[in-house]
């Protein structure tokens, strides 16, 4: 099961990279970036998975010295941070696309050559 999840994560990373390179439309490039982001998040969560363990929410305080059968909470907390940062980055990218579209009335990346050498 965990191998399926981590494969999906890696596949999304590759798909995102391909989309970032291949797509011409700026909005599609942003969607590819979010796919990349989601793929990495899925990989991080699946790294914290412990076989046959449950979610890190406890019913009672564990007795001293015993470890409850839960998955690792640390990668999950990390992913929570990563999702929020990803949201901020996506919002900023969308803003710049809006500004670029106001300037050139186009979303095709080939029409923006000001910084090309």
């Amino acid at each position: 099961m965990e191998y399926i999840i981590i494969s999906i994560g890696f596949a999304l990373v590759l798909l995102g990279l391909y989309g970032i390179m291949y797509m011409r439309n700026l909005m599609r490039i942003i969607i590819a970036f979010t796919l990349f982001n989601t793929g990495i998040n899925i990989v991080m969560v699946s790294i914290g998975y412990i076989r046959n363990a449950s979610a890190p929410i406890l019913d009672a305080i564990p007795a001293a010295g015993t470890t409850p059968n839960i998955v690792d909470p640390v990668p999950q907390a990390l992913v929570l941070t990563a999702i929020v940062i990803g949201l901020g980055v996506t919002a900023l990218m969308l803003t710049y696309v809006v500004k670029l579209h106001q300037d050139k009335k186009s979303l095709d990346i080939n029409n923006f050559k000001d910084l090309k050498w």
Partner: peptide, 19 residues
């Protein structure tokens, strides 16, 4: 990648003492 049976050291500390 290898699926794990045990928590990492930090995760184990949180699991035992966090609550």
């Amino acid at each position: 990648y290898d699926s794990k049976e045990n928590l990492s050291t930090l995760g184990e500390y949180y699991a035992q003492n966090g609550a």
